[in-house]
Nucleic acid binder design. Structure first.
Lengths: 125, 125
DNA sequence: CCAATATTCCAACAATCGATGGATTGTTAA
DNA sequence: TTAACAATCCATCGATTGTTGGAATATTGG
């Protein structure tokens, strides 16, 4: 049964060309970096104010190397920026978009209760 | 340094204090589900049109159980919705929000070249 | 130079993840 | 009921991940 054309329901949406494989991979990498509670918390911490590694480690009561490793992942996908100042290396959110992305996810998590099935069908879990 | 006050396009987003731990965990779970190229591709495929598991498996030349497992992850965080119709189970994007999230990430990946250092001194949007 | 401090690099390790085949459940038709 | 098909559940396996201690690097100050 191959009926992939006869179920109307999707409005004609301007499809901005399908993302390339490279783009999908890049996006997945970003999401993967975001997909860890500790890294996410670190990002939100940086949203408040920039900080150096030792300060962050002290703040979250974690090992230095642990925090450094987390920052390395976040920095690897440019979610945070690095800046050296004397002996310290300061990290900061790359830009406001990052925060938006996170808050979008939090939003989605909060409302997904019934929004999920809304446009599709009503079902009960 | 720019203050978040006079942005001419965003609805008044009240800074929602700091997200709770549960919210962070939930967001991380969503990001983790998004953090896999195959799952991401599956989502984009569903953005085109809903489909049942076997159709998706056939479409992407993957095992049925593999696709089912991927969908299970996506469904687990309500990124996609499930609907049973006769013998088939149809999956669809949970809502448009999901697509926005993905395109935001792709966007970020594309522009992250110089956006990284922007936040530290002068930023431009 | 050497010492002290801040951070990253490296090499384990346990924990988790994704794919997969086979068993199981669910649905329809005879 | 049995048969056929669709999808999920379960157990396993190989690969990857996150943490961590110790070594290496970088920077500043004697």
């Amino acid at each position: 049964m191959r009926r992939s054309g006869t179920h109307g329901g999707h409005p004609p949406r301007p499809r901005p060309s399908l993302p390339s494989r490279a783009q999908i991979d890049a996006a997945a990498e970003i999401f993967r970096a975001l997909g860890d509670p500790e890294r996410l918390r670190l990002l939100l911490r940086l949203a408040g104010s920039q900080a150096c590694v030792s300060e962050l480690a002290d703040d979250e009561a974690e090992k230095l190397t642990t925090v450094s490793a987390r920052l390395r992942v976040l920095s690897g996908v440019r979610l945070v920026s690095r800046r050296r100042e004397a002996k310290h290396v300061f990290y900061a959110l790359a830009d406001e978009h990052v925060l938006q992305l996170i808050h979008n996810a939090i939003d989605h998590a909060g409302e997904s209760r019934n929004a999920a099935a809304a446009a599709f069908n009503q079902e009960e879990d």
